[in-house]
Every structure is written in structure tokens, then in C-alpha cells.
Computed example of a mutant assay.
Amino acid sequence: MRLQALSGPHRAVLALGSNLGNRRENLQGAIDALADTPGVRVNVVSPLYITQAVGGPEDQPEYFNAVVIVDTFLPPEMLLDRAHAVEEAFQRVRTEHWGPRTLDVDIIVYGDEVSDDPQLTIPHPRAHERAFVLAPWVDADPEAEIPGHGRAVDLLVKLGTAGVERRDDLELRLPE
């Protein structure tokens, strides 16, 4: 099913991750780049989390993860294009599935949109199984829900938070 361009603004949740380079600066740079995008307003930045790599090759460095909540006038496909452009600006290289990366920007939800489009599945197909997405998201929005899966806080309780550590000493800021 092809996603439609919707009028807006629409609330979207994006998950950010980095396990190469200066991870905190990579995440903050992604937040700033998203905020500089016409048609995107970053409203909420979660606390930063340090997490173990999930899937992919073993012996990866720990990830820094966060979630941002945005209002956007961009349709989902254009928001995805922007997310990829931000990754590329931070030298994201896609050589190994779930391999280490300087930056990962994933659209988790876009309004109440549900789509099985192979280019952009919404909600993100594994978000409900990922504590590294759910923990910062629940901090950013305790009432968060994933269409078709339920409340993020309930999903997080089921999963547990082993390997997911909130780091209040490593601050990410909302752009001015």
C-alpha cells in the first residue's frame, strides 16, 4: 500500500541511535538537522540511553539511543528521505545489516498511519520489541501508543529494561 501525502501537521516519533564516533554529538547533530528541516518542528527530546547492540554482528560498541517527537507537514516518504539524508550527513554506511553505524534515524510512528509499504512500514515493524526504543519514548511521552500493539509503557514492562541504561549525565537538548 502506498502512503498518501497528508496535510498536517502530523505528529511523528523518530528513534535515533549511534554506536560509532562521538555518539552523543551524532545524536545531537541529528536532532539539530531535523529541527533545521522546513516543515519539521522538534517538540520533545528524550533522555539519552546507553544500550547493548541488538541483532547483527557481535562485539559492537554500545549504542547511544534517544527518541524525538516532531510535528511535521512532510508526508511520511519525505520525512524518510530527510531521515536518510541526515544519516548520510553523518557518514552512515550501510554495509552490514544491523551493523555498527554512526547514525540511525528511524520513523517509529507517523500519526495514526498504518502501512505495510516495503519502503516505509509504519509503525516500525520491530519498535514494539525494542526496549531501546520504548524506554526513551516512554520518558518523552508516557501516554505513547503503537498502533496495533498498544501502550508503549505496557510493552516496555513486558520486555524489561535489561541492557538499557538511562544516562542523565549525557544530555541532549531541544534546539532553540
Rank of each mutant, 00 (worst) to 15 (best):
N22D: 10
R23A: 05
R23L: 05
R24A: 15
E25P: 11
L27T: 05
Q28H: 10
Q28F: 13
Q28D: 02
G29L: 09
I31C: 06
I31W: 02
D32E: 04
A33T: 08
D36L: 14
D36K: 15
P38Y: 08
P38W: 08
G39N: 05
G39A: 06
R41L: 09
V42L: 06
V42P: 03
N43P: 05
N43D: 09
V45F: 12
V45C: 10
Y49K: 02
G56S: 03
E58D: 10
E58S: 14
E58T: 10
D59G: 12
D59M: 03
Q60E: 01
Q60C: 07
P61D: 01
E62N: 10
E62T: 09
Y63N: 00
Y63A: 00
F64S: 03
F64G: 00
A66G: 12
A66L: 07
A66K: 03
V67Y: 04
V68D: 00
V68G: 01
V70W: 05
V70H: 05
D71S: 12
D71Y: 08
D71V: 01
P75A: 01
P76I: 00
M78V: 07
L80P: 02
L80I: 04
L80T: 04
D81L: 10
D81A: 15
D81T: 11
H84M: 11
A85V: 13
A85S: 15
V86G: 02
E87S: 13
E87K: 12
E87Q: 12
E87M: 11
E87Y: 13
E88H: 15
A89P: 08
A89W: 13
F90I: 07
Q91I: 15
Q91D: 15
R92D: 05
R92V: 14
E96A: 02
H97E: 00
H97A: 02
G99L: 00
P100V: 04
P100E: 01
R101W: 10
T102N: 10
V105L: 08
V105G: 03
V105W: 04
D106S: 11
D106E: 06
I107H: 06
V109A: 09
Y110D: 03
Y110A: 06
Y110E: 03
E113W: 07
S115T: 03
D116M: 08
D117F: 14
D117P: 14
Q119N: 14
T121M: 12
I122Q: 08
P123N: 02
P125S: 11
R126V: 04
H128C: 09
E129S: 09
E129K: 10
R130H: 13
A131H: 09
F132D: 00
F132S: 03
F132E: 00
L134V: 13
L134Y: 14
A135V: 09
A135P: 14
P136M: 04
W137G: 01
V138L: 07
V138Y: 07
V138Q: 03
D139H: 15
A140M: 07
D141F: 11
E143S: 15
E143W: 13
A144C: 12
E145D: 11
E145M: 13
